[in-house]
């Protein structure tokens, strides 16, 4: 049994309260801003004590932003992205850690460098490929001469536009270097005995994956799910670019639209209230996932 150190526990609470206060302060301040009338939100500096207009401002934001449909879109986008990233990364990392094959390292690095060229830098070609996702295939057919053999009609018909669609909102963002890397890190900590035992039992790799690797990964999956859901939820530039149909846009874009410029009535309070509305679903996800965290731990170790 570990000693029950009261002093340390108190110290821990002090540090945590301070840390949380620092980290959550900007969020609190947004909450304050969201609850003030416009005259007060424009004071210099903005007050530190919340006002009584929160509901009103949120309603105004909801009204202006047509958030209903956008929230649904964001939820779909964030869930598909998080789920998709986790699924394909679990598999990729498994391949990279549990197999030896040519170009293993190259495959890992190919996935990894995707972190290193922000979308802002490759915006035009990325948009072009979203406007026709089959363009690379068409190019391939042309370069290899296959298209010529088929009379050149094939490439002209290879059209698949992802603009204004859920596929477009999600598929291009579904690869994940971080998730692949994280799972690789985790798999490396799984004792080799387990794989050895599975092999002796005659279990194939997929069986081992399903029965051993996946259950062990629960904590990491839960942690990642939170992070990736929020990542997907907070996407801004991509949905802004590839959707023009207002019914396909996401809530973060809707919030951005509320942010005032230099104008007669800079309604920061409404913008911040909109920000809070957009924040609620991810918060819900965090809470639900926490439940998972804890449950997983109680079952296994603590």
């Amino acid at each position: 049994m570990i000693e029950n150190n009261r002093a340390l526990a108190i110290f821990a609470h002090i540090i945590l309260v301070l840390g949380v206060a620092t980290i959550a302060f900007p969020l609190y301040y947004a909450f304050v801003g969201a609850s003030l009338p416009i005259e007060e939100v424009l004071q210099v500096p903005m007050p530190l004590v919340p006002g009584d207009r929160l509901i009103e401002n949120m309603a105004a934001a909801w009204d202006k932003g047509s958030f209903g449909r956008q929230l649904v879109n964001s939820a779909i986008m964030a869930s598909v992205i998080a789920g998709g990233k986790i699924a394909i990364s679990l598999l990729s990392a498994f391949a990279i850690t549990y197999f030896r094959f040519p170009f293993r390292t190259a495959a890992f690095w190919a996935i990894f460098v995707t972190l290193m060229l922000p979308i802002e830098v490759r915006i035009v070609p990325t948009y072009e490929v979203a406007a026709n996702a089959l363009a690379p295939l068409a190019w391939l057919l042309q370069v290899t001469g296959i298209d010529g053999l088929l009379g050149g009609r094939l490439t002209a018909n290879l059209q698949w536009s992802l603009l204004d669609s859920y596929v477009g909102l999600t598929l291009p963002l579904i690869a994940s270097a971080t998730a692949t890397f994280l799972f690789r890190q985790f798999y490396l900590t799984i004792p080799d005995d387990l794989a050895e035992a599975a092999k002796i039992d005659g279990a194939g790799p997929m069986r081992f994956f399903r029965d051993v690797v996946l259950p062990l990964s629960t904590t990491n999956i839960a942690a990642l799910a939170v992070i990736l859901f929020v990542f997907g939820w907070n996407q801004y530039l991509w949905p802004l670019l590839i959707t023009t149909d207002p019914s396909m846009t996401t809530v973060v874009v809707g919030v951005a639209r509320l942010i005032p410029g230099p104008e007669p009535q800079p309604a920061w309070n409404v913008a911040m209230a909109g920000g809070l509305v957009a924040l609620l679903p991810p918060v819900l996800v965090v809470l639900v996932m926490q439940h998972w965290f804890v449950k997983g731990l109680v079952d296994t170790e603590k």
Binding site: A24, L27, I259
Partner: peptide, 17 residues
Amino acid sequence: SLVIWPYAVAPVLAGVL
């Protein structure tokens, strides 16, 4: 919960904040 929430603040608002 309190440590995780700030991560969910939309980046477009974070700069303003």
